[in-house]
Each structure stands twice: as structure tokens, then as C-alpha cells.
């Protein structure tokens, strides 16, 4: 599920400890930072969902997803839906599907059966967490509305931004957190035939 060659500041992501630090930094540092940035932009726009705020939200969500992986564009986690064959008629008419780093790499990134099962299980867990979180945040949103309408106007978009960024990054972070240490792949043994 994880590219064994991936490194972060010289530390290999094959080690689970490194990945867990990464996930902790992501949820403990980056996500709160993004939320603060979003909220500041929202306040600069005087409490309206301006184009700048929307742009920031979209960029943050998509760049973070690409960074973590799970998409064809790259990242530490293998793409969840690797596509190596042309399936779309329009796509075959106008362009070939562009794999990440050439056709061979795209085929290598395709998951085997064990990885697909693992991916599905992780998505099941992510769905369960996301469902509870969604219901909790929706309840919080409604409660804020009942309590004070002004508070809803101030914090509502932030709640939804947090929800969206969680939805787009939860499976990847669960994989990074739970996947065991990766063993280095054995180098292919080249047997030289002795000429007699």
C-alpha cells in the first residue's frame, strides 16, 4: 500500500514509526494550521464565503490529498484506483491516460488482491469514523444555530472545511498509521552462467 522508496527529510517511510510521526504532525499541526488560515480568510471576507476562501479551501484539500497519496498524481500511499487501461471512449479519442511516471510505473502501482482487501477494510473503518464525525459535526452545527445564529455564521464554514479535509485524507492517514514496517525488497539475483 505504501511506496517503499518514499522518504521524508531522509527518513524512509518504510518504517512505521516515521509514518506515525508524519500522521501526528499532519493532524496535530497542518490541519489546525489550515483551519486557522481558512478561518482568517473567512473573517477577512467579513463573514462571507468569498472566492478567495473557496480557492484556499479547494487548494488545501486537493494538495493535501495529493501529498498523502491515494490518487494517481502521486503521494506516499499507492493510488486507490490505479487505471492502466483506456476505458473512457472520449479519453481514447483525445488523449491517452497519463500514468504517474510511465506505463510501467502505473502497472507497478496497481494493487494486488491483498492490498485491495486491505484498502477496502481501511475504507470501511474510515467510513465508520467519518459517519460518526459527520453526525457529530452536523449536530454541533444545529446546536450552534439554536443557541446563537451569529455563532453559526462565524463557525459554520469552518466546521464544513474540517469535515471535508477529514473525508479526503482519512483513509490515507489510516493506512500510513496501521501498515506495518515494510521489508526492503530483495535485490534480483543475477546468475551468471559460466562458460565452459
Amino acid at each position: 500500500m505504501i511506496s517503499a522508496d518514499s522518504t521524508l527529510f531522509g527518513h524512509s517511510l518504510a518504517r512505521r514509526r516515521t509514518r506515525r510521526w508524519l500522521v501526528a504532525a499532519f493532524w496535530g499541526g497542518l490541519v489546525p494550521l489550515l483551519c486557522v488560515g481558512f478561518h482568517e480568510l473567512y473573517f477577512i471576507a467579513r463573514g462571507t464565503f468569498s472566492l478567495n476562501t473557496l480557492n484556499f479551501a479547494l487548494l488545501a484539500i486537493f494538495w493535501i490529498t495529493i501529498w498523502l497519496g491515494g490518487v494517481r498524481a502521486g503521494g506516499w500511499v499507492k493510488p486507490f484506483r490505479a487505471q492502466t487501461k483506456v476505458r473512457n471512449i472520449l479519453q481514447s479519442l483525445f488523449a491517452k491516460p497519463q500514468p504517474t511516471q510511465g506505463e510501467l510505473t502505473a502497472q507497478e502501482l496497481a494493487m494486488d488482491e491483498r492490498e485491495i482487501n486491505r484498502r477496502d477494510h481501511i475504507h470501511f473503518v474510515a467510513y465508520s469514523i467519518a459517519r460518526n464525525m459527520t453526525l457529530f459535526l452536523f449536530t454541533l452545527y444545529c446546536m450552534l444555530g439554536f443557541w446563537k445564529q451569529e455563532l453559526l455564521r462565524q463557525t459554520g464554514p469552518l466546521i464544513f472545511f474540517l469535515l471535508t479535509i477529514t473525508l479526503w485524507s482519512l483513509p490515507q492517514t489510516l493506512i500510513l498509521w496501521t501498515e506495518p514496517d515494510l521489508e526492503p525488497e530483495a535485490e534480483p539475483v543475477i546468475v551468471k552462467e559460466k562458460r565452459t
Binding site: D120, H123, F124, Y127, P171
Partner: peptide
């Protein structure tokens, strides 16, 4: 699990 993946 597969259906949860699609639903996700």
C-alpha cells in the same frame, strides 16, 4: 468492505 469503499 467493498461497498463501504464505494460509498466512501
Amino acid at each position: 468492505y467493498r461497498m463501504h469503499t464505494k460509498a466512501y
